[in-house]
Design a protein around this nucleic acid. Structure first.
Length: 388
DNA sequence: AATTGCTGCAACCGCGGGAAC
DNA sequence: TGTTCCCGCGGTTGCAGCAAT
Protein backbone atom coordinates (compact mmCIF):
# COMPACT_ATOMS: atom_id res chain seq x y z
CA UNK A 1 0.00 0.00 0.00
CA UNK A 2 2.12 2.85 -1.16
CA UNK A 3 1.58 5.92 0.84
CA UNK A 4 3.53 9.09 0.80
CA UNK A 5 4.53 10.36 4.23
CA UNK A 6 2.64 13.58 4.63
CA UNK A 7 5.38 15.27 6.61
CA UNK A 8 8.19 14.62 4.18
CA UNK A 9 7.22 17.54 2.04
CA UNK A 10 9.86 20.20 1.85
CA UNK A 11 9.02 23.50 3.44
CA UNK A 12 6.64 22.18 6.00
CA UNK A 13 7.36 23.34 9.47
CA UNK A 14 7.93 20.97 12.35
CA UNK A 15 8.40 21.38 16.03
CA UNK A 16 6.57 23.45 18.61
CA UNK A 17 3.60 25.45 17.53
CA UNK A 18 3.67 29.20 17.85
CA UNK A 19 0.71 31.17 19.22
CA UNK A 20 0.19 32.60 15.74
CA UNK A 21 -0.12 29.17 14.24
CA UNK A 22 -2.47 28.11 16.99
CA UNK A 23 -4.59 31.14 16.31
CA UNK A 24 -4.73 30.43 12.61
CA UNK A 25 -5.72 26.83 13.14
CA UNK A 26 -8.26 27.70 15.77
CA UNK A 27 -9.82 30.43 13.69
CA UNK A 28 -10.04 28.26 10.63
CA UNK A 29 -11.62 25.32 12.40
CA UNK A 30 -14.06 27.52 14.26
CA UNK A 31 -15.21 28.97 11.00
CA UNK A 32 -15.11 26.00 8.68
CA UNK A 33 -14.65 22.90 10.76
CA UNK A 34 -11.59 20.85 10.10
CA UNK A 35 -12.90 19.01 7.06
CA UNK A 36 -10.06 17.23 5.36
CA UNK A 37 -7.00 17.50 7.48
CA UNK A 38 -4.80 17.08 4.48
CA UNK A 39 -6.28 20.09 2.79
CA UNK A 40 -6.59 22.18 5.91
CA UNK A 41 -3.07 23.62 6.20
CA UNK A 42 -3.17 25.25 2.79
CA UNK A 43 -6.63 26.65 3.38
CA UNK A 44 -5.70 27.91 6.82
CA UNK A 45 -2.44 29.37 5.66
CA UNK A 46 -0.31 27.08 7.73
CA UNK A 47 2.99 25.62 6.71
CA UNK A 48 2.29 22.41 8.50
CA UNK A 49 1.20 18.99 7.41
CA UNK A 50 -2.37 18.00 8.03
CA UNK A 51 -1.32 15.40 10.46
CA UNK A 52 0.45 17.94 12.60
CA UNK A 53 -2.61 20.17 12.53
CA UNK A 54 -4.87 17.34 13.54
CA UNK A 55 -2.60 16.43 16.40
CA UNK A 56 -2.35 20.00 17.58
CA UNK A 57 -6.08 20.34 17.48
CA UNK A 58 -7.02 17.09 19.14
CA UNK A 59 -4.37 17.21 21.81
CA UNK A 60 -4.20 20.87 22.63
CA UNK A 61 -6.50 23.35 20.95
CA UNK A 62 -9.79 21.54 21.17
CA UNK A 63 -12.07 23.57 23.43
CA UNK A 64 -13.42 20.63 25.38
CA UNK A 65 -10.10 19.55 26.74
CA UNK A 66 -9.57 19.51 30.45
CA UNK A 67 -6.01 20.20 31.41
CA UNK A 68 -4.21 19.95 34.67
CA UNK A 69 -3.83 17.42 37.39
CA UNK A 70 -5.62 14.13 37.15
CA UNK A 71 -8.01 13.44 39.97
CA UNK A 72 -7.80 10.31 42.05
CA UNK A 73 -10.87 8.97 40.35
CA UNK A 74 -9.40 9.59 36.96
CA UNK A 75 -6.25 7.81 38.00
CA UNK A 76 -8.16 4.82 39.22
CA UNK A 77 -10.17 4.83 36.05
CA UNK A 78 -7.04 4.73 34.00
CA UNK A 79 -5.49 1.98 36.06
CA UNK A 80 -8.54 -0.19 36.03
CA UNK A 81 -9.21 0.30 32.37
CA UNK A 82 -5.59 -0.34 31.63
CA UNK A 83 -5.86 -3.60 33.52
CA UNK A 84 -8.67 -4.53 31.23
CA UNK A 85 -7.64 -3.01 27.95
CA UNK A 86 -3.89 -2.60 28.06
CA UNK A 87 -2.37 0.23 26.08
CA UNK A 88 -5.58 1.05 24.26
CA UNK A 89 -5.28 4.69 25.06
CA UNK A 90 -7.98 5.84 22.74
CA UNK A 91 -10.40 3.33 24.18
CA UNK A 92 -9.46 4.38 27.67
CA UNK A 93 -9.85 8.00 26.68
CA UNK A 94 -13.45 7.40 25.68
CA UNK A 95 -14.13 6.87 29.37
CA UNK A 96 -12.29 9.97 30.42
CA UNK A 97 -14.03 12.82 28.70
CA UNK A 98 -12.02 15.97 28.27
CA UNK A 99 -8.82 13.98 28.44
CA UNK A 100 -6.92 13.05 25.32
CA UNK A 101 -5.42 9.70 24.66
CA UNK A 102 -2.05 11.35 24.41
CA UNK A 103 -2.42 12.96 27.78
CA UNK A 104 -3.56 9.73 29.36
CA UNK A 105 -0.71 7.88 27.75
CA UNK A 106 1.79 10.42 29.01
CA UNK A 107 0.31 10.39 32.45
CA UNK A 108 0.44 6.64 32.59
CA UNK A 109 4.04 6.52 31.47
CA UNK A 110 5.26 9.28 33.74
CA UNK A 111 3.20 8.74 36.87
CA UNK A 112 0.97 5.74 37.17
CA UNK A 113 3.31 3.15 35.78
CA UNK A 114 6.00 4.16 38.21
CA UNK A 115 3.59 4.30 41.07
CA UNK A 116 2.34 0.80 40.44
CA UNK A 117 5.89 -0.30 40.05
CA UNK A 118 6.74 1.09 43.46
CA UNK A 119 3.79 -0.72 44.93
CA UNK A 120 5.18 -3.95 43.61
CA UNK A 121 2.61 -4.31 40.89
CA UNK A 122 3.66 -5.07 37.38
CA UNK A 123 2.19 -2.19 35.38
CA UNK A 124 1.90 -4.39 32.33
CA UNK A 125 0.11 -7.36 33.77
CA UNK A 126 -1.30 -5.62 36.86
CA UNK A 127 -0.13 -8.57 38.86
CA UNK A 128 2.05 -8.46 41.93
CA UNK A 129 5.50 -8.96 40.62
CA UNK A 130 6.26 -12.01 42.75
CA UNK A 131 3.22 -13.76 41.44
CA UNK A 132 4.65 -14.17 38.03
CA UNK A 133 6.28 -17.32 39.28
CA UNK A 134 2.94 -18.75 40.10
CA UNK A 135 1.64 -18.67 36.62
CA UNK A 136 0.96 -22.08 35.25
CA UNK A 137 -1.05 -23.76 32.60
CA UNK A 138 -4.30 -23.00 34.25
CA UNK A 139 -3.50 -19.36 34.34
CA UNK A 140 -2.35 -19.45 30.80
CA UNK A 141 -5.64 -20.89 29.80
CA UNK A 142 -7.48 -18.29 31.74
CA UNK A 143 -5.22 -15.67 30.34
CA UNK A 144 -6.16 -16.82 26.91
CA UNK A 145 -9.79 -16.41 27.76
CA UNK A 146 -9.02 -13.08 29.26
CA UNK A 147 -7.37 -12.10 26.08
CA UNK A 148 -10.53 -12.91 24.20
CA UNK A 149 -12.60 -10.92 26.58
CA UNK A 150 -10.25 -8.01 26.41
CA UNK A 151 -10.31 -8.18 22.66
CA UNK A 152 -14.04 -8.01 22.67
CA UNK A 153 -14.15 -5.23 25.15
CA UNK A 154 -11.60 -3.34 23.15
CA UNK A 155 -13.60 -3.93 20.04
CA UNK A 156 -16.68 -2.71 21.77
CA UNK A 157 -15.04 0.43 23.00
CA UNK A 158 -13.53 1.11 19.66
CA UNK A 159 -16.86 0.54 18.00
CA UNK A 160 -18.50 2.85 20.45
CA UNK A 161 -15.95 5.51 19.78
CA UNK A 162 -16.43 4.97 16.07
CA UNK A 163 -20.16 5.26 16.39
CA UNK A 164 -19.75 8.46 18.29
CA UNK A 165 -17.49 9.81 15.61
CA UNK A 166 -19.87 8.76 12.88
CA UNK A 167 -22.74 10.28 14.73
CA UNK A 168 -20.88 13.52 15.03
CA UNK A 169 -20.01 13.39 11.43
CA UNK A 170 -23.63 12.96 10.49
CA UNK A 171 -24.58 15.75 12.79
CA UNK A 172 -21.90 17.98 11.41
CA UNK A 173 -23.20 17.45 7.92
CA UNK A 174 -26.50 18.89 8.91
CA UNK A 175 -25.33 21.64 11.15
CA UNK A 176 -23.49 24.89 11.02
CA UNK A 177 -19.74 24.98 11.31
CA UNK A 178 -19.98 26.46 14.75
CA UNK A 179 -22.22 23.70 15.93
CA UNK A 180 -19.99 21.20 14.31
CA UNK A 181 -17.15 22.71 16.18
CA UNK A 182 -18.93 22.30 19.44
CA UNK A 183 -19.40 18.65 18.70
CA UNK A 184 -15.83 17.87 17.98
CA UNK A 185 -14.37 16.09 20.89
CA UNK A 186 -14.75 13.07 23.03
CA UNK A 187 -17.68 10.82 23.34
CA UNK A 188 -18.70 12.82 26.33
CA UNK A 189 -19.59 15.76 24.21
CA UNK A 190 -23.24 16.34 24.36
CA UNK A 191 -25.79 18.64 22.99
CA UNK A 192 -27.55 21.23 25.06
CA UNK A 193 -29.42 18.49 26.81
CA UNK A 194 -27.93 17.26 30.02
CA UNK A 195 -28.70 13.71 29.11
CA UNK A 196 -25.94 11.77 27.46
CA UNK A 197 -26.34 11.73 23.76
CA UNK A 198 -25.61 8.38 22.34
CA UNK A 199 -25.12 7.65 18.73
CA UNK A 200 -28.19 6.21 17.20
CA UNK A 201 -26.60 2.83 16.81
CA UNK A 202 -25.61 2.80 20.42
CA UNK A 203 -29.08 3.72 21.46
CA UNK A 204 -30.32 0.93 19.32
CA UNK A 205 -28.14 -1.48 21.18
CA UNK A 206 -29.26 -0.09 24.49
CA UNK A 207 -32.80 -0.50 23.40
CA UNK A 208 -32.20 -4.09 22.52
CA UNK A 209 -30.57 -4.60 25.85
CA UNK A 210 -33.10 -2.84 27.96
CA UNK A 211 -36.04 -4.42 26.38
CA UNK A 212 -34.57 -7.83 26.27
CA UNK A 213 -35.28 -7.99 22.61
CA UNK A 214 -33.96 -10.67 20.41
CA UNK A 215 -30.35 -11.34 21.05
CA UNK A 216 -30.03 -12.38 17.51
CA UNK A 217 -30.69 -8.79 16.65
CA UNK A 218 -28.08 -7.64 19.06
CA UNK A 219 -25.71 -10.26 17.88
CA UNK A 220 -26.31 -9.18 14.35
CA UNK A 221 -25.50 -5.66 15.29
CA UNK A 222 -22.48 -6.85 17.18
CA UNK A 223 -21.20 -8.50 14.09
CA UNK A 224 -20.73 -5.01 12.82
CA UNK A 225 -18.59 -4.30 15.79
CA UNK A 226 -16.39 -7.28 15.61
CA UNK A 227 -12.81 -6.55 16.15
CA UNK A 228 -10.78 -7.24 13.08
CA UNK A 229 -8.10 -8.62 15.30
CA UNK A 230 -10.28 -10.79 17.36
CA UNK A 231 -9.73 -14.45 17.23
CA UNK A 232 -13.38 -15.00 17.82
CA UNK A 233 -15.70 -15.13 14.94
CA UNK A 234 -19.24 -13.96 14.84
CA UNK A 235 -20.45 -17.49 14.95
CA UNK A 236 -18.88 -18.39 18.22
CA UNK A 237 -19.84 -15.31 20.13
CA UNK A 238 -22.34 -16.40 22.67
CA UNK A 239 -25.34 -14.17 23.13
CA UNK A 240 -24.28 -13.41 26.66
CA UNK A 241 -21.06 -12.02 25.39
CA UNK A 242 -22.82 -9.70 23.05
CA UNK A 243 -24.80 -8.50 25.98
CA UNK A 244 -21.73 -8.18 28.12
CA UNK A 245 -19.97 -6.28 25.44
CA UNK A 246 -22.95 -4.08 25.08
CA UNK A 247 -23.17 -3.58 28.77
CA UNK A 248 -19.65 -2.62 29.56
CA UNK A 249 -18.70 0.91 28.76
CA UNK A 250 -20.27 4.26 28.62
CA UNK A 251 -20.00 7.55 26.94
CA UNK A 252 -20.35 9.97 29.75
CA UNK A 253 -18.62 10.24 33.03
CA UNK A 254 -19.55 11.63 36.36
CA UNK A 255 -18.00 14.22 38.54
CA UNK A 256 -14.50 13.86 39.81
CA UNK A 257 -12.91 15.15 42.92
CA UNK A 258 -9.40 16.18 43.61
CA UNK A 259 -7.53 14.03 46.04
CA UNK A 260 -4.02 13.89 47.35
CA UNK A 261 -1.56 11.12 47.00
CA UNK A 262 -2.58 9.61 50.28
CA UNK A 263 -6.18 9.57 49.25
CA UNK A 264 -5.19 7.98 46.04
CA UNK A 265 -3.33 5.26 47.80
CA UNK A 266 -6.20 4.76 50.14
CA UNK A 267 -8.66 4.50 47.33
CA UNK A 268 -6.44 2.28 45.35
CA UNK A 269 -5.89 0.15 48.38
CA UNK A 270 -9.59 -0.29 48.76
CA UNK A 271 -9.98 -1.45 45.25
CA UNK A 272 -7.15 -3.87 45.57
CA UNK A 273 -7.68 -5.01 49.10
CA UNK A 274 -7.45 -8.59 48.11
CA UNK A 275 -3.84 -8.21 47.22
CA UNK A 276 -2.57 -8.21 50.75
CA UNK A 277 -5.20 -10.55 51.94
CA UNK A 278 -4.23 -13.10 49.43
CA UNK A 279 -0.67 -12.86 50.50
CA UNK A 280 -1.45 -13.00 54.18
CA UNK A 281 -4.22 -15.46 54.25
CA UNK A 282 -3.55 -18.02 51.64
CA UNK A 283 -0.98 -20.66 51.14
CA UNK A 284 -1.19 -20.24 47.44
CA UNK A 285 -1.55 -16.56 47.01
CA UNK A 286 -3.76 -15.51 44.20
CA UNK A 287 -2.39 -13.03 41.74
CA UNK A 288 -3.84 -9.61 41.67
CA UNK A 289 -5.38 -10.38 38.36
CA UNK A 290 -6.94 -13.49 39.66
CA UNK A 291 -10.01 -11.38 39.46
CA UNK A 292 -9.46 -11.09 35.80
CA UNK A 293 -8.95 -14.76 35.55
CA UNK A 294 -11.99 -15.37 37.60
CA UNK A 295 -14.09 -13.19 35.43
CA UNK A 296 -12.72 -14.70 32.32
CA UNK A 297 -13.31 -18.18 33.48
CA UNK A 298 -16.70 -17.06 34.58
CA UNK A 299 -17.33 -15.91 31.07
CA UNK A 300 -16.32 -19.24 29.74
CA UNK A 301 -18.39 -20.99 32.32
CA UNK A 302 -21.29 -18.76 31.61
CA UNK A 303 -21.07 -19.46 27.94
CA UNK A 304 -21.43 -23.10 28.67
CA UNK A 305 -24.14 -22.95 31.27
CA UNK A 306 -25.83 -19.78 32.36
CA UNK A 307 -25.64 -18.47 28.89
CA UNK A 308 -27.79 -21.26 27.75
CA UNK A 309 -30.64 -20.03 29.80
CA UNK A 310 -30.06 -16.47 28.79
CA UNK A 311 -29.98 -17.53 25.22
CA UNK A 312 -33.06 -19.63 25.64
CA UNK A 313 -34.94 -16.65 26.93
CA UNK A 314 -33.62 -14.48 24.25
CA UNK A 315 -32.19 -11.98 26.64
CA UNK A 316 -30.26 -11.58 29.81
CA UNK A 317 -32.29 -11.32 32.93
CA UNK A 318 -32.94 -8.06 34.70
CA UNK A 319 -30.44 -9.06 37.32
CA UNK A 320 -27.91 -8.01 34.81
CA UNK A 321 -24.37 -8.78 34.33
CA UNK A 322 -23.18 -8.17 37.85
CA UNK A 323 -25.41 -10.77 39.35
CA UNK A 324 -24.73 -13.04 36.50
CA UNK A 325 -21.09 -12.49 37.05
CA UNK A 326 -21.26 -12.93 40.76
CA UNK A 327 -23.52 -15.90 40.63
CA UNK A 328 -21.35 -17.51 38.10
CA UNK A 329 -18.44 -16.51 40.17
CA UNK A 330 -19.96 -18.29 43.07
CA UNK A 331 -20.43 -21.32 40.98
CA UNK A 332 -16.97 -21.05 39.79
CA UNK A 333 -15.73 -20.59 43.30
CA UNK A 334 -17.29 -23.80 44.32
CA UNK A 335 -15.68 -25.41 41.41
CA UNK A 336 -12.28 -23.91 41.45
CA UNK A 337 -11.46 -22.96 44.96
CA UNK A 338 -13.10 -25.75 46.77
CA UNK A 339 -11.95 -28.72 44.93
CA UNK A 340 -12.22 -27.75 41.33
CA UNK A 341 -12.96 -29.49 38.11
CA UNK A 342 -16.64 -30.02 38.47
CA UNK A 343 -18.92 -31.30 35.83
CA UNK A 344 -20.39 -28.49 33.81
CA UNK A 345 -17.22 -26.62 33.59
CA UNK A 346 -14.88 -27.60 30.86
CA UNK A 347 -12.94 -24.39 30.94
CA UNK A 348 -10.82 -24.62 34.01
CA UNK A 349 -10.08 -28.17 34.72
CA UNK A 350 -6.95 -27.40 36.65
CA UNK A 351 -8.44 -24.54 38.53
CA UNK A 352 -7.53 -25.98 41.88
CA UNK A 353 -4.34 -24.03 41.70
CA UNK A 354 -6.31 -20.92 42.40
CA UNK A 355 -6.02 -21.24 46.12
CA UNK A 356 -8.34 -22.77 48.59
CA UNK A 357 -10.09 -22.30 51.85
CA UNK A 358 -10.91 -18.60 51.62
CA UNK A 359 -13.49 -18.73 48.96
CA UNK A 360 -15.66 -16.12 50.56
CA UNK A 361 -12.81 -13.70 50.83
CA UNK A 362 -11.89 -14.26 47.27
CA UNK A 363 -15.44 -13.92 46.27
CA UNK A 364 -15.75 -10.63 48.06
CA UNK A 365 -12.46 -9.43 46.74
CA UNK A 366 -13.36 -10.23 43.23
CA UNK A 367 -16.72 -8.70 43.76
CA UNK A 368 -15.19 -5.50 45.01
CA UNK A 369 -12.62 -5.33 42.31
CA UNK A 370 -14.93 -6.05 39.44
CA UNK A 371 -17.70 -3.99 40.77
CA UNK A 372 -15.23 -1.18 40.83
CA UNK A 373 -14.39 -1.72 37.22
CA UNK A 374 -17.92 -2.38 36.15
CA UNK A 375 -19.25 0.55 38.10
CA UNK A 376 -16.51 2.61 36.71
CA UNK A 377 -17.38 1.70 33.21
CA UNK A 378 -21.07 1.83 33.75
CA UNK A 379 -21.44 4.84 35.98
CA UNK A 380 -21.89 7.09 33.05
CA UNK A 381 -24.25 4.85 31.21
CA UNK A 382 -27.83 5.85 30.88
CA UNK A 383 -29.35 5.89 34.29
CA UNK A 384 -31.92 3.34 33.37
CA UNK A 385 -29.33 0.76 32.82
CA UNK A 386 -30.64 -2.53 34.07
CA UNK A 387 -27.27 -3.52 35.31
CA UNK A 388 -27.12 -1.70 38.61
C1' DA B 1 26.76 30.14 39.54
C1' DA B 2 27.51 26.26 36.62
C1' DT B 3 26.74 21.61 35.58
C1' DT B 4 24.39 17.39 35.52
C1' DG B 5 20.52 14.43 35.76
C1' DC B 6 15.66 13.81 35.95
C1' DT B 7 10.87 14.61 34.83
C1' DG B 8 6.91 15.84 32.23
C1' DC B 9 4.82 16.79 28.13
C1' DA B 10 4.18 18.29 23.33
C1' DA B 11 5.06 16.68 19.05
C1' DC B 12 6.72 13.41 15.67
C1' DC B 13 6.95 8.92 13.35
C1' DG B 14 5.48 4.76 11.38
C1' DC B 15 1.97 1.58 10.87
C1' DG B 16 -2.62 -0.36 10.06
C1' DG B 17 -7.51 -0.01 8.88
C1' DG B 18 -11.10 1.60 6.15
C1' DA B 19 -13.07 4.32 2.45
C1' DA B 20 -12.86 5.87 -2.15
C1' DC B 21 -11.73 5.12 -6.70
C1' DT C 1 -9.84 -6.70 -7.03
C1' DG C 2 -6.11 -3.81 -6.42
C1' DT C 3 -4.37 0.75 -5.45
C1' DT C 4 -4.33 5.10 -3.28
C1' DC C 5 -5.65 8.30 0.13
C1' DC C 6 -6.93 9.72 4.63
C1' DC C 7 -7.32 9.16 9.34
C1' DG C 8 -6.35 7.51 13.88
C1' DC C 9 -3.53 4.97 17.05
C1' DG C 10 0.41 3.70 19.86
C1' DG C 11 5.30 4.15 20.50
C1' DT C 12 9.01 7.16 20.71
C1' DT C 13 11.70 11.38 20.74
C1' DG C 14 13.22 15.99 21.87
C1' DC C 15 13.24 19.71 24.72
C1' DA C 16 12.07 22.87 28.48
C1' DG C 17 11.89 23.29 33.29
C1' DC C 18 13.33 21.91 37.66
C1' DA C 19 16.10 19.84 41.38
C1' DA C 20 20.31 18.14 43.08
C1' DT C 21 25.14 18.52 43.37
Amino acid sequence: MGRSPCCDKVGLKKGPWTPEEDQKLLAYIEEHGHGSWRALPAKAGLERCGKSCRLRWTNYLRPDIKRGKFSMQEEQTIIQLHALLGNRWSAIATHLPKRTDNEIKNYWNTHLKKRLDKMGIDPVTHKPKNDAILSNEGHSKSASNLSHMAQWESARLEAEARLVRESKLRTSHSSSPSLQHSLIGTSASSSSSSAPVLPSSTRYLDHAWNNGSSTSTVATRMSDLESPTSTLSENNVPPIMTSVIEFVGSSERGMVKEEGEREWNKGFQESTTHLGEYKDGMENSMPFTSSLHELTVTMATTWGSSTTSAHAHGHVSEDGFTNLLLNSNSDHRSLSSEGGGDSNNNCHGNSSDGGNGTGNELYEDNKIYWNNILNLMNCSSPSDSPMF
